[in-house]
Simulated assay, not measured.
Amino acid sequence: MLANKVNENFYPSIQRVVGRDSSFFQSVHFSLLFLNLSLLVVAAALSKFKFSYFDFRYNQTVLLVVGFVIIIYLGVKKPERSWYARRSLSETIKTLSWRYSCMSTPFGELERVDDDLFLERINESCVESDFVDGFRPSYVMSVTPTAEMIRVRKLSLDDRVNFYVTNRVQGQLRWYSSRAKRNRFFHWFVFSILCACSAMAVVLSFVNEVQSVNDMPTDVLIALSSSLMAWMQSRKYVELTAAYKLTAYEIESARSLVHSISTPSEFNQFVDEMENLFSREHTQWIAKRQV
């Protein structure tokens, strides 16, 4: 009886370590960016209103200094670069793991030969990542294929095909489809708030100019609108929605080829095409963020 999904022990432990690091640096990058934009909005509010719980001398200056420090940190330490490098390395290890399990190019020789090649390719990937982020290749010197990878490798052709399609292809299809929907939702959600803030800023500005009312929070709404625009640009909701929808469509189209597989060479070609498709997406993902 084949498992319905791949558990975390399918991949080598380094993949889980790198994946957690990628999520951590992603959280650091966006949390600091969100904090910086929020500080700008609060500073704008302090220039217009007084808050008893935050009423001390130089309060606005303190917020702007903290925001400035965050900008310096993001520019010098570049946590997004660590995020990009580790995500790319994590996806590369996944691809190598599946190629090894399915005995697809460049694997397909004796198990001992493929074991050595698997370690060599992971080491090469870590060295390449080291140029981007300082990742230490010494972490992976003892990496070997997991017991689950070896088990899948020894399955019959039909079982390997079924396992790969169920766990890898359909898993990737679900991931890209759900991420496309998620990014589309957040794009329209943030965009709606942006439009509302901008419209309110226009109305309040008009009222202020007509009636000479000076206590309108127009500056706060302008700062909030600018921050929302910067947040949308940093999250790349529209770009990611299009990219994920395209990849999901390509996976769906390529998945239909599985019905014509009857020989190991045909399966090898199928796996090679699918893994190249997955690799192309995350390679483009990295390239677009390093521009």
Rank of each mutant, 00 (worst) to 15 (best):
L246S: 15
Y11M: 05
S13H: 02
A243G: 04
L257K: 07
S279N: 12
V127T: 05
S82W: 15
F270A: 00
L74M: 09
L89M: 11
R160E: 02
G134A: 07
L157S: 03
V65N: 01
R179D: 01
E109R: 01
V271D: 00
K5M: 12
C195I: 15
V127M: 14
K181F: 14
V127H: 10
F185A: 04
L63W: 04
M200H: 04
Q26A: 07
R112F: 14
V152G: 06
R179Q: 00
V143I: 09
S262F: 11
I70A: 00
Y249E: 15
R57A: 12
D272W: 11
N123V: 13
W175F: 08
G108P: 03
N276L: 12
H29Q: 10
I72P: 01
I70M: 02
A45M: 08
K94C: 06
E281M: 02
E91N: 00
I251P: 00
A243S: 05
R136V: 15
K154L: 13
E80Y: 07
M232G: 09
P217C: 04
G75S: 12
C197G: 03
R57N: 14
E109C: 03
I72K: 01
V190K: 03
R179P: 00
D116H: 03
L37V: 03
F278D: 05
Q233C: 14
Q211K: 06
F107A: 05
A85G: 03
L64N: 02
E80V: 10
A248H: 01
S260N: 11
I122A: 00
K78G: 11
F56E: 06
F191Q: 08
M149D: 08
D116V: 08
Q211T: 10
F25N: 00
N4V: 15
R235K: 13
P217S: 07
T146P: 00
W83E: 12
V76E: 02
M1I: 12
L33V: 11
V213S: 11
S192Y: 04
L40K: 11
F278Y: 05
A180P: 00
S97Q: 03
E91H: 03
I251H: 01
Y249A: 14
L63V: 05
R20N: 14
I72W: 08
N123F: 15
S227Y: 04
F51A: 07
H282P: 01
R112K: 15
F34H: 04
S256W: 12
V132H: 12
A201M: 13
I251K: 00
S23I: 12
V65C: 03
A201G: 13
E252V: 08
S260Q: 13
D159W: 12
K77F: 14
N59L: 09
P79N: 09
W98K: 01
H29N: 11
R184H: 14
T105L: 09
K288R: 12
S142A: 15
R112W: 10
S234D: 07
N214L: 15
L194M: 08
S265V: 05
Y244M: 07
G108E: 03
S256D: 14
L32T: 02
L228E: 02
E80R: 01
W98M: 06
S101I: 10
S23Y: 11
S279F: 06
T144W: 04
R280P: 05
L64T: 02
Q26C: 13
S177E: 10
V17N: 10
S205V: 12
K78P: 03
S177F: 03
E111M: 07
Q211I: 13
